[in-house]
Design a binder for these strands. Structure first.
Lengths: 259, 259
DNA sequence: GCCGATAATCTCATATTACAAGAAAATGTG
DNA sequence: CACATTTTCTTGTAATATGAGATTATCGGC
C-alpha cells in the first residue's frame, strides 16, 4: 500500500498513478488493496473516472486507461509550444540525415520524449514518445542538466547520485559535475553508444524565457554514419536548432503577455 | 461560468475540461472567471495539476496541457486491447488498398479515432487521432449506432435528433431508425462523400464480450478507386476484420477472468 | 427464462478537509 | 533596489468525503 494522499485531488491522481508500464490493468479488488480505499469510495472514484473517459473497462475485465487520454493528447499536440515550434526542426534534421530527431521534455526527475521523427529504416527506437527515461542516461539528460544553475544542479545530482554512478558518469557529485563542464563549453552533449550500442546521440538544451533549460533537441544516428568531421557538423546543427526553438518559445511569450 | 461541480473529483475534471480545441491556453485569471473558484482554491488546483504534469506553464504564459498526458497516452497505447488487437488489421487493409484505415471508439455521445494507418499520399485526414466527432457524421457512427439494442438506441437518437437532421439522416426519429436498417442488414455502413467530398467510408462495428458495439473498424478511400464490385469487396473485408477484432477482445476477456 | 453468486451502488452518521477572505511571501520588472 | 504582480499561507467555518453495512444490479450457469 502506498503513501496516503491527503486530499481528494491527490487521491484521484493516486488512482491514475498506479497505471504504469509494469501494470496496465487493474481490477477493483486489486485497487482497493493497493490504494487502501473502502469499497464504496473506490467505486465512486472509478465511476467518475470512467464517466469522464480517463478509465475504461469491459465486462469481466480490469480497468485500463481510457479514451479521454487520447483526446487530451490530441489537444496537447495542438497546444504545446515546444512541439509546435520544434516539429519543423525535427523534419529538417530527419530530412538531412538518416537519423531519428527528438524533442524531449524535462519532467520531474525524468525526461520524456514528446515528439520524434525518424528517417531511418531500423527505427524501432528504444526511446518512443511518452516513455519516461532517467535524466542520467545518454546525451539528452546531460544536455539539460549541464545548463541548470548551480543552486539547482547540485541538489539534483546529490539526490540522484546512485543513478549517475550506475550510468558511469562519475562516482562523486564533483566528478559528475566535472563531466558536465565540457557539455556546457560546447553547448551540446554527445554520447557514443550509451543508450543503444552503435548509436550516437547529439543533444542541445532548449531554454524557456527565463533562460532555464526545460527540454532538449536531439538527433540519434548510426555510429558508422558519422565518421570524421560530420559529428561536429551535426552537433552544431543540433545546437543551432535548439537555439532557434528557444527563441521561438520566447517570442510566443511576448504574444501572450501583451494581449 | 459553467455548471457547478459537486465534488472535488468533478472539480478537477472541470479544470481539465476547459482545455478544448477552441481554447488551448488559459491564464489563472481567466480560469477563476470561467470556473468560479476563489483565488487560493484555483491556485491550489493549478499547483497540484502542474506538479503532477497534467498542466504546464512557462513564465508569463497561460497554462496548457502538460507532459503527463503524453506519458498516459503511451501507456494507453500499450494497454488498450482495442488498439492492440486492431492494429494488425489496420496494417493489413492499408497495405492492400491505397486508403486510410481507422479504429474508432464510441465515447460519450461522440466517436473518437484511437488509431489509424494511412497508405494514401494526400492523407491529411479530416479525422485525426484524438479528435472527437459527432456520432451522426459518416459511416463510422452509423455502424456503431445501428447495432445498439433498441432500448438504448431510441433514447439516443431522440436526444440527438437535431444532429441527425443536420446530417441529413432523416427528419424524425423513425426515419433515422429506418435508415439504419440497411446497415444492420449488410453488417457494415457505407458513406459516399459524407465527411469529405470524393471520399468513401466503409465501417463495421466492433463488439465487446456482451455483444454491444463499442467501436468501429473503418476504411476511407478515394471515390474513384472503388468502381464497380470493389466497393462490396472492401465492405466485406472491413466486416471481416471487425469481426476478428471482436473475437480477439472476447478471448482477452477470458484470459483475465480465469486468472 | 429463472436462479444463485458476484459486483456495484445506496443510506446515513461522523469526522475530515475543502473553502474563502485576508495577509504574507515570492517572483518578476523597470 | 524598490515597485507591482503573481502565488502561497493562515484561519475559522461549512461543506462533503468517508466507511460499515444493507441493498440493488448484473452476470453466468442451467
Amino acid at each position: 500500500m502506498r503513501k496516503k494522499a491527503v486530499n481528494s485531488l491527490e487521491r484521484l491522481q493516486a488512482v491514475l498513478e498506479v497505471f504504469t508500464e509494469d501494470r496496465l490493468e487493474w481490477t477493483p479488488e486489486e485497487l482497493m488493496e493497493e490504494l487502501g480505499y473502502s469499497r464504496p469510495t473506490l467505486y465512486r472514484y472509478l465511476k467518475i473516472l470512467k464517466e469522464s473517459g480517463f478509465l475504461t473497462s469491459m465486462p469481466n475485465t480490469g480497468f485500463t486507461l481510457g479514451p479521454r487520454v487520447v483526446e487530451m493528447d490530441y489537444l496537447l499536440r495542438k497546444s504545446d509550444n515546444l512541439i509546435l515550434s520544434g516539429t519543423p526542426y525535427l523534419q529538417k534534421l530527419a530530412g538531412r540525415y538518416e537519423c531519428t530527431a527528438l524533442l524531449v521534455r524535462w519532467y520531474g526527475e525524468k525526461i520524456l520524449c514528446v515528439d520524434s521523427i525518424s528517417s531511418s529504416h531500423e527505427a524501432i527506437s528504444s526511446y518512443p514518445r511518452g516513455r519516461p527515461m532517467p535524466l542520467s542516461r545518454g546525451a539528452i539528460g546531460r544536455s539539460i542538466v549541464a545548463f541548470l544553475p548551480r543552486r539547482n544542479l547540485v541538489p539534483l545530482i546529490t539526490r540522484t547520485l546512485d543513478e549517475w554512478q550506475a550510468a558511469g558518469a562519475g562516482d562523486t557529485v564533483e566528478a559528475v559535475l566535472d563531466g558536465l563542464k565540457s557539455v556546457r563549453k560546447k553547448g551540446y552533449a554527445v554520447a557514443y553508444g550509451e543508450v543503444t550500442p552503435g548509436v550516437v546521440g547529439f543533444a542541445a538544451p532548449i531554454f524557456d524565457a527565463g533562460q532555464s533549460p526545460i527540454a532538449s533537441f536531439s538527433v540519434t544516428i548510426a555510429q558508422d554514419h558519422v565518421g570524421g568531421p560530420l559529428a561536429e557538423k551535426i552537433g552544431h546543427e543540433v545546437l543551432l536548432a535548439a537555439g532557434e526553438i528557444s527563441a521561438a518559445l520566447a517570442s510566443h511569450r511576448h504574444r501572450i503577455s501583451s494581449r
